[in-house]
């Protein structure tokens, strides 16, 4: 079995722990991180929006952004590998996050990812746009994990048009 674990900065510990618990011992595992080119794009677009200013290379004394994200990604992948506790290939990509994840999932049997939406609003928004896209388009099965504890059944609202009033949402 070939499994891809997509790790994201704020939820990687939970993703790696769940993957370690659920993946079979003989699985061929790859850890994936995608650096967000959009944020870098905003930085350079804002610079280009300054009318009439020189638009050559970034100013001396300012680190190039791709180098910063590449280093952060390597550190994150190394930490995730040691916390996974088994051999795995490491893959660092950069670009549009959701598209890179789907591309990396080609030929895989399973993709493990964490929800990236708003935990307080269970429903369509509990998946953010990147995870939504990945879940919809990934060419393999998906293991979607809760980065925190899974919600209790009591968080489900009453069916419309009658029934008991919904219990108050669990506070965090």
């Amino acid at each position: 079995m070939r499994a891809l674990i997509w790790i994201v900065e704020d939820t990687w510990q939970a993703t790696v722990a769940e993957a370690a618990a659920h993946l079979p011992a003989d699985a061929d595992v790859t850890l994936l991180h995608v650096a967000d080119a959009e944020a870098e794009g905003v930085v350079s677009a804002a610079r280009h929006a300054l009318l009439g200013r020189p638009h050559g290379a970034p100013r001396a004394g300012v680190d190039p952004l791709p180098a910063i994200s590449a280093q952060a990604a390597q550190e994150l992948l190394a930490e995730a590998l040691s916390s996974l506790g088994r051999p795995a290939k490491l893959e660092a990509r950069r670009g549009r996050i959701e598209r890179e994840v789907v591309a990396a999932a080609e030929g895989m049997d399973l993709l493990v990812l964490a929800r990236d939406g708003e935990r307080e609003r269970l429903g369509p928004r509990s998946l953010g746009p990147p995870a939504r896209f990945v879940v919809d388009h990934t060419p393999c099965s998906v293991l979607l994990i809760w980065p925190d504890d899974a919600p209790a059944l009591a968080t489900i609202p009453a069916p419309p048009g009658g029934g008991a009033a919904p219990p108050p949402p669990a506070s965090r």
Binding site: E9, D10, D36, V43, A46, L50, R59, A72
Partner: peptide, 18 residues
């Protein structure tokens, strides 16, 4: 734009937040 934004990018990335 030129001096602070790259620093903010680096700070957020190193803090491991998006």
């Amino acid at each position: 734009i030129i001096l602070l934004t790259p620093i903010v990018f680096a700070t957020a990335t190193r803090m491991r937040t998006r």
